[in-house]
Design a protein around this nucleic acid. Sequence first.
DNA 1: AAGTGGTCTAGACCACGTC
DNA 2: ACGTGGTCTAGACCACTTT
Lengths: 242, 242
Amino acid sequence: MVQESPTFSPLYRQIKSLILHALEAGEWRPGEAIPSEHELAARFSVSQGTVRKAIDEMAAENLLVRKQGKGTFVASHSDPRSLFRFLRLVPVDGRLEHPISIPLECWRAKAGQEAAKMLGIELGAPIFILRRLLRFNNKPVVIDEIYLPGEAFHGLCFEMLQDWNGSLYSLFEARFGLRMIRAQERIRAVGADRSSAEALRVAEGTPLLSVERLTYTYGDKPVEWRRGLYATTDHYYLNELS
Amino acid sequence: MVQESPTFSPLYRQIKSLILHALEAGEWRPGEAIPSEHELAARFSVSQGTVRKAIDEMAAENLLVRKQGKGTFVASHSDPRSLFRFLRLVPVDGRLEHPISIPLECWRAKAGQEAAKMLGIELGAPIFILRRLLRFNNKPVVIDEIYLPGEAFHGLCFEMLQDWNGSLYSLFEARFGLRMIRAQERIRAVGADRSSAEALRVAEGTPLLSVERLTYTYGDKPVEWRRGLYATTDHYYLNELS
DNA sequence: AAGTGGTCTAGACCACGTC
DNA sequence: ACGTGGTCTAGACCACTTT
């Protein structure tokens, strides 16, 4: 079963790849259980231990969630536990505040130089641009500008965003079948310009965190680029180094 | 019915804990190989697979490094690969620059309110305060103020810092037997004050990243608290979300 | 009682590095 | 050739959840 070197890849990684493709093809939806380890072992004609190791890795990558006695489930952004996986903003006083997302605008546009490069699409290709505000405890803390490739998101509109009760990524998951797997953030400090100062209710020139995020779905395909400006008077960006 | 103990911990975690204690006691030094899985299995009277699972977890936590065909080694900050594990600053133009650390000052002091709280020591306990500059490509980019508990670092002096060729953490490891395991960073945006503006060669008020880091050694014991100011005109703080 | 994931074992074999 | 970690298997039993 195992290939010869130099393209050697262990059996459990081949199994992992098969499960990954099944996930990508939507064989099981987010939140649903995948077949038991025993069933998958029979399906792929390998031992249960080999399936186990494949699933172990996928669980470590937050693609699957294991629940003893119940089964293994497809990770979902609807799960409240995964909310702060991508939003690393924490209030100074320690009180956990559930942020509220307020969509401001949403319009069609053509990809500029930077957006095209980041999203890996043609210059001038259709995109959506979305502006939204994040409130913690009714105070504006983050203003986001989000760039989405038109192809993957057609049908997106302002009303859809307003009607949705939940995180943006859970909407992407439910409406467009797009699962955000990992992201890369580039952080710097900038001074607030006029429009962001107004939105965040701070003085012009106030130091803000500029957080540029590129988010990837399966196959390391970038599907979202965003730039957020964070007011850090009452909150900070928390990062664990390990 | 037999009530199971609520403190149940699987065998491999007990083994992990034993290896951890041996590490903490300095049985093997950073960079050295630990005994083979087979030897450890014999020593603890368990199967090799159980030792393996313990080491797997410790490798995932960057405490050990496995090298196929050679052995398993105690992770070390002298290893160049671990340099950017704690310094997440990347130049905008992509060219990898090796940062150079320039010690500015080092003096004894008594722990103030904040340092005492962070380091978990008595108010007024002896500490060291260290200021240093980080240059990338000969340009000042980071100014750090570092607070160290006096007890763990006695003998530290300015000359020692100047003479050391390597990262601060590799010095801590070699001179004080203190291994930095994990850290937590709190990031916000601030305006440069007079002294930091001078050190970083920027205008007063320039937005800077304020990065407060609390670093832990074995047993989740905090042993370093630092505050860094990062100039982000030519560099950004890179964070992977996964 | 039955089904799920979680642990533990023992043994065989493979890939890598060194002697 | 030998020792190291890496993979794969098969089976037993444990812990948790549901029926």
